[in-house]
Amino acid sequence: MLEVRGLTTEYGAITALRDVSLSVGAGEVVGLIGPNGAGKTTLLGSIAGLLMPSRGTVHLGDDDVTGQTPEKMLRAGVALVPEHRRIFVDMTVEENLRIGGVTVPHARRVELLEEMAELFPVLRDKWTTSGGFLSGGEAQQLAIARALMSGPKLLMMDEPSLGLAPIIVDLVFDLIDRLRAEGRTILVVEQNATRMLQAADRAYVLRSGVIVADGSGQELLAREDLFDTFVGG
């Protein structure tokens, strides 16, 4: 479904990604792991249209969507749950979800709101609470639900477990399992490599802006040199 070829992204003089290629098939959960500074967030940003790649292509299905704006990417079917969640703290849970569905027709939006209430019971209980009053775990669920409100073909998450207590991290990975069971296509950036590899169908290891390893989650987990690959030892 998503096909990234030879993507290179630069911030001014900094080359944050070099010639990165990866693919995500329909219904797959793909993990992207690597130490901080590896370029994971840059990669998601370049796919989602927040950053302009200097070389390479991004295809979604048969369409070339390289260098589109975020609003166009979302309409093409790619939703990103950004790093640090970035929910709208002055808006209620419901309003956050509605803005997530800004691109879908009204009737569909109402249906999706109900689906999200089903999928995230925690949020249903806080429906009219301001985003700013949610706990970290609740906010993360809201951020994911908000992205799902656009009915995306591909859901991308950036560090969904960052800054969460271990028990909430379990919850996030349970959620990823549930979404996989629903047949959704997901690309997740995670720092927690072991958990990610357990949860993912396939994964890529990114280090210093380059893909240094890839394979199924189990294959990578079994690799003796995973730690060295990871941190460049």
Binding site: L50, R75, I87, D90, M91, R98, I99, V102
Partner: peptide, 23 residues
Amino acid sequence: MFGLALRAAAADFDAARLMGVRS
């Protein structure tokens, strides 16, 4: 929806664009 989009954009412009709000 316009009002929501406006408030969202005022709070966090990039996050709003990620939701599909047209700048």
